[in-house]
Simulated scan of single mutants.
Amino acid sequence: MTTPSSGSGGHDRSPEHRSDEAGPGSTGSEPRFVLHKPGGEPVRTGRNLPVAIASGCVLGALVFFSIFPYPALFTLICSAAVLIGMREVNRAFASKGMDVAVVPLAVGGVAMQAAAYFGGTEWLLGTAALTAVVSLAWRLRGGTEGFVADVSASMFTLVYLPFLLSTWMLLVAHPEEGQFRLVTFIVVTISSDIGGYFAGILLGRHKMAPVISPNKTWEGFGGSVLGCCLAGALCVTLMLDGPWWVGVVLGLAVVLAATVGDLIESLFKRDLGIKDMGRFMPGHGGLMDRVDSLLIAGPVVWIVLTLLL
Results as ranks from 00 to 15, higher is better:
3 T>P: 07
4 P>H: 10
7 G>V: 04
14 S>P: 03
14 S>M: 13
14 S>C: 14
15 P>A: 10
19 S>M: 15
20 D>M: 11
20 D>Q: 15
22 A>P: 01
26 S>T: 08
30 E>K: 10
32 R>P: 00
34 V>K: 13
34 V>L: 11
35 L>P: 07
41 E>L: 11
42 P>V: 10
43 V>E: 02
43 V>M: 05
45 T>H: 05
50 P>M: 13
50 P>E: 13
56 G>K: 07
57 C>T: 14
60 G>F: 09
61 A>L: 12
61 A>H: 10
64 F>D: 01
71 P>E: 04
75 T>C: 14
76 L>P: 03
77 I>G: 05
78 C>H: 12
83 L>N: 06
84 I>T: 07
85 G>Q: 01
87 R>I: 14
89 V>I: 15
105 L>P: 00
110 V>S: 03
110 V>W: 02
120 G>R: 14
122 E>V: 12
124 L>P: 02
131 T>Q: 02
139 R>V: 01
139 R>L: 13
141 R>Q: 13
143 G>Q: 06
145 E>R: 15
145 E>W: 07
146 G>H: 03
150 D>N: 15
151 V>E: 00
153 A>Y: 03
153 A>T: 05
153 A>K: 03
157 T>R: 03
157 T>E: 01
158 L>C: 13
160 Y>G: 04
162 P>D: 03
163 F>R: 02
166 S>M: 09
166 S>C: 10
169 M>A: 08
174 H>V: 06
175 P>D: 06
177 E>F: 14
183 V>N: 02
183 V>T: 13
183 V>G: 02
185 F>R: 04
186 I>P: 00
191 S>L: 09
191 S>M: 15
191 S>R: 07
193 D>I: 09
195 G>S: 06
197 Y>F: 13
198 F>V: 06
200 G>V: 04
204 G>P: 02
204 G>F: 01
207 K>A: 14
207 K>T: 08
214 P>H: 09
215 N>S: 15
217 T>I: 06
217 T>V: 11
217 T>S: 15
218 W>P: 06
218 W>R: 10
221 F>V: 10
225 V>P: 00
229 C>G: 09
232 G>E: 01
237 T>R: 10
237 T>G: 08
241 D>K: 14
245 W>I: 12
246 V>C: 07
246 V>D: 00
248 V>A: 11
257 A>R: 01
258 A>S: 12
259 T>W: 01
261 G>Y: 00
262 D>V: 09
262 D>I: 05
271 D>H: 11
273 G>Y: 04
275 K>Q: 11
275 K>P: 01
277 M>V: 09
284 H>W: 07
285 G>K: 09
289 D>I: 04
289 D>P: 03
291 V>I: 12
291 V>E: 00
292 D>C: 11
293 S>N: 07
294 L>F: 13
296 I>D: 00
296 I>Q: 00
296 I>Y: 04
302 W>S: 03
304 V>M: 04
304 V>T: 09
304 V>L: 05
305 L>K: 06
308 L>Y: 05
